[in-house]
Nucleic acid binder design. Structure first.
Length: 442
RNA sequence: GGAGGGUUGCCCGAGUGGCUAAAGGGGACGGGCUGUAAACCCGUUGGCGUUUGCCUACGAUGGUUCGAAUCCAUCACCCUCCA
């Protein structure tokens, strides 16, 4: 694949390593001379998108920052079937209500994030940017629901060759796995997705579909259908799926996926996820998820190389992405909470500030009277559930892992009202990262 | 149906009568170094009290013994070989 693209968007995506494959070389020419409508689809499998989806959203964002016009499809119809691509087993079918709910949630997320994306780092916007474009989110159920099975077979199905379909990786892999097989429903998935593209080509002048590299088969199904039925070109581009340096999929932790919905993954947890990325992955993440320029990214990564960064690079990464997904205010809050949660002495706060900074942290209650009388630190650690037994609590404190308001304490410490960090709360910490907010009540 | 081997703490695994709350390794946890990274170093790792102490624990139950993870019996489960 040539990297000497004439269109500014492909040049940018190329240096960011965001291009896995494109269907036709004429795409570059087209993107270079006009503003192109493009789309990507999102599966409504959950009521929130996660950072795996963010990879594709970034693709749309880069296009828009170069003056192209993204559409998004929330797969109300396709979600009912389930994409077999990259899936080892057949997906469970979801109820209509659940899908509708998920689409509504996705739609809001997609629009806010894409809107932020075009306003961040205006100095790095590409050619032709600036024209207002309020990204529509469409539901493919709207144009698929009225088809009858017979009409669909006659008008759409006849353009698909089974030989070709079987040859696609997403299908082939499942067919060779005799254990799993592939239902006809799933097999038909690419017809539906192909038809979506055709519909968008016809009604929205959409000429390009982008997606993860596992979407290649589905995307080409669409470009071929358009060619056959309309006799006009249509293009596809896939983006490499993100793997970390250990070869795992990005965005999964022991605790589960990293979601874009703050109710599922709080902005603080989201921010922390990025802070904790391995050095080896940082460059790739900057290229994929931020709008910083090539020079800025090179300079930041050079700091990791020469060790002069003092830990600032991951913080910058985390800040940029949190800003994009949750907004600047939430990103600033995450930075402040992180300072408090990583060592800075906790004092002089009011209840409200403390509660919001430690929103992530579990809490326990202690009676006002008991605190007035004084509670031994070991008992407090056990009573609040931060330590499982008194022996463990003693061990912890003796080893220097017990903290009140981020001040190390010894085993003789009696906790009283003097330890309150705000009107009614104080913060216990066990080891480096385990925090607990103690609230006084009664 | 016959012969033999096994079952130990979160996991693996040593231990064949007292010095065994049980070697060693992994994991986990705490500390140090550092950048909230990786690597590395030190420490901790049944419960309760902590200065010596008490309780509970080596598949289950019962027994021998001053004393058992270690010996005996029965039961349960696992493995190997022969039919």
């Amino acid at each position: 694949m040539s990297t000497n693209f004439q269109s500014s968007v492909l040049r940018e995506l190329a240096w960011r390593d965001r291009i896995d494959a494109t269907t036709h070389t004429e795409l570059d020419e087209l993107l270079g001379k006009e503003s192109v409508v493009l789309y990507a689809g999102f599966d409504p499998t959950a009521d929130s998108l996660h950072i795996g989806n963010l990879v594709v959203m970034m693709g749309l964002a880069f296009y828009q920052r170069h003056g192209h016009k993204p559409l998004m499809i929330a797969g109300g119809a396709t979600g009912r079937i389930g994409d077999p691509s990259g899936k080892a087993t057949e997906r469970e079918l979801m109820s209509v209500e659940k899908i509708e709910h998920n689409i509504a949630c996705h739609s809001a997320q997609l629009r806010t994030i894409l809107d932020r994306a075009v306003h961040m780092h205006p100095e790095n916007l590409g050619d032709g940017a600036g024209e207002a474009w309020d990204t529509p989110v469409l539901n493919n159920y709207d144009w698929l629901r009225d088809w009858t099975f017979l009409d669909f077979l006659r008008d759409i199905g006849k353009h698909f060759r089974v030989n070709t379909m079987i040859a696609k990786d997403s299908v082939k892999n499942r067919l060779t796995e005799r254990e799993q097989g592939l239902s006809f429903t799933e097999f038909s998935y690419m017809l539906i997705q192909g038809f979506d593209f055709y519909h968008l080509r016809e009604h929205h002048s959409c000429q390009l579909q982008i997606g993860g590299s596992d979407q290649w088969g589905n995307i080409t199904a669409g470009t071929e259908l358009i060619r056959r039925k309309m006799g006009v070109p249509a293009f596809g581009m896939t983006m490499p799926l993100l793997l970390d340096s250990a070869g795992n999929k990005f965005g999964k932790t022991a605790a589960g996926a990293i979601w874009l919905d703050p109710a599922r993954t709080s902005p603080y947890a989201f921010y922390q996820y990025w802070i904790n990325r391995d050095d080896a992955d940082v460059e790739k993440l900057f290229k994929t998820f931020t709008f910083l320029s090539q020079d800025e990214i090179t300079a930041l990564c050079a700091q990791i190389e020469d060790g002069s960064n003092r830990g600032q690079v991951q913080q910058r990464l985390a800040y940029e992405i949190t800003w994009l997904v949750h907004g600047k205010d939430e990103a600033d809050m995450a930075v402040r909470a992180s300072r408090m949660l990583f060592g800075e002495r906790i004092e002089g706060l009011d209840d409200k500030a403390l509660a919001s900074l430690f929103a992530e942290v579990p809490s326990a209650e202690v009676s006002r009277d008991a605190l007035a009388a004084g509670i031994n630190i070991l008992d407090l650690l056990v009573d609040t559930g931060l330590q499982p037994s008194k022996g463990a609590a003693r061990r912890l404190v003796q080893q220097g892992g017990g903290y009140v308001n981020n001040e190390r304490v010894d085993a003789d410490t009696t906790v009283t009202h003097d330890h309150l960090a705000s009107e009614s709360m104080l913060v216990l910490r066990a080891g480096k990262k385990k925090y607990l907010v103690v609230k006084t009540v009664g």
